[in-house]
Design a protein around this nucleic acid. Structure first.
Lengths: 241, 241
DNA sequence: TAATAAAATTGGTATAGACCATATAAAGAC
DNA sequence: GTCTTTATATGGTCTATACCAATTTTATTA
């Protein structure tokens, strides 16, 4: 299977997705050396610069690593969440060999408070869907999430199966492609309610994560506030100078 | 002032540093549109691809933003620390308009415990410098840091002025260029000692950050454990899908 | 057989050019 | 003055080529 020049997607994006797929399917394993730039150039009949662009983006995403004169290798993924990649919880846990599941605690259509309305850039009177979900890995609570999505972007959202990936529903049913997010992370301590939900003690440390996700045009789609167990969750990020 | 082709630095890196300098000096202000790719190509007598590479890296670092058909603009910096950029505390605070300062609490040469030794890949018997510093912004404690650096990489380190940037000392005096880091972030609560150092109450929430910084060859240089005030510090990260 | 040198491989940098897509400005028509 | 069309500006994608630097492989020599 090669690249599809009739596709609307740029060639470098297709090549990138193709290489990701090889990794996800296990064709290319951790620490495997992938074909050279010149080999991929020949195999897929694209220019070396196109190949390089695809690879460099995967390097920036922490998926590949490369060394001059040596080659390009599949990177070992860490067990902690990769902070720089916009993945849903489901995909993150799967990448870590854990069995993710979701328990929808509440799902409703409400009028948002002013903070949510500002973040999603809504007009007065516009409603949102609010989803309250518990996130589990191997049947153990990891995080509690409250998501807000603008009602007008996905009417009837609550009629879909929200025990599965919300991102998937948005993409497949509403043609909404999430592309960017701004995320903040700070420390807190668990309230009684949060402690009960997460199977921890009141006043235990938690990580409070807020994320505003947008589409390719930086249009706000979803605002999430998540509470992560401080004892179970450690965020990992790779930095470059 | 243009690019220096005699310099060992690649042209795109020089151009990148030059553009950063214009922003830091205020020549290019927040939301300013910078010269077009084709203008920079002419001004600096480099290829458009070289210009693009410099700009794209600044975009990835959250410094510039761009829109097809419109232009490239200086991004508004957030007040929270950008998690994906490897900057020292000093530079981070300056980028936020805060006055950074450092108070060295202790500096010594010690034998590392096994955890530090493993992280820095040291042999038995090799010593480290340990630096314990309080990080302040506008004279208020923000973080408490303990750094470990291999003694053999920078003999006589303690003879240098460590109230200024450690990274700067390593670069200028020991020719060590820090390039990558793996960083983890988790929640905790302040011990009595930590609370006293940071001007907070015992059991207040804190962010515990551990970072292993390496040079370009992924050789471990510095291991840091930092305690950030949970009330004052919020990490921000921009994600892409 | 081992050491050294040369060649090949592979990633990194850079140039040049062309064309596409998006956005804005200018010119022309009414 | 407003609307439409055309031109221009600017970022995005892609190809092709050349050369450099680092590393590995192969060939040559002692």
């Amino acid at each position: 299977m090669g690249l599809n020049e009739a596709s609307r997607l740029p060639l470098y994006v297709q090549l990138k997705e193709l290489m990701k797929e090889k990794i996800e399917k296990g064709e290319w394993k951790i620490n495997d050396k992938i074909p050279s730039e010149r080999d991929l150039e020949k195999d897929y009949d694209v220019s070396r610069m196109t190949v390089r662009k695809a690879i460099i983006e995967l390097v920036n995403e922490g998926i590949l690593t490369r060394k001059q004169g040596k080659g390009t290798f599949v990177k070992e993924l860490r067990i902690e969440q990769d902070l720089v990649k916009l993945n849903g919880f489901t995909q993150e846990m799967r990448l870590r060999g854990l069995k993710p599941s979701t328990r929808v605690i509440d799902a409703a259509e409400i009028s948002p408070d002013i903070d949510v309305r500002n973040k999603l850039k809504l007009n007065l009177g516009e409603k949102v869907f609010v989803l309250k979900r518990l996130r589990l890995a191997n049947d153990e609570p990891m995080a509690y999430e409250v998501s807000y999505i603008s009602e007008k972007l996905c009417p009837d959202l609550l009629n879909h199966n929200l025990n599965q990936s919300l991102y998937k529903v948005l993409t497949e049913e509403y043609n909404i492609a999430l592309k960017y997010a701004m995320q903040s992370l700070e420390a807190g301590i668990a309230s009684k309610k949060e402690a009960d939900l997460l199977n921890i003690n009141e006043n235990d440390p938690i990580l409070i994560l807020e994320r505003l996700t947008t589409d390719g045009n930086e249009r706000p789609i979803e605002f999430v506030k998540s509470i992560y167990r401080g004892d179970k969750f450690k965020f990992l990020v790779r930095l470059t100078g």
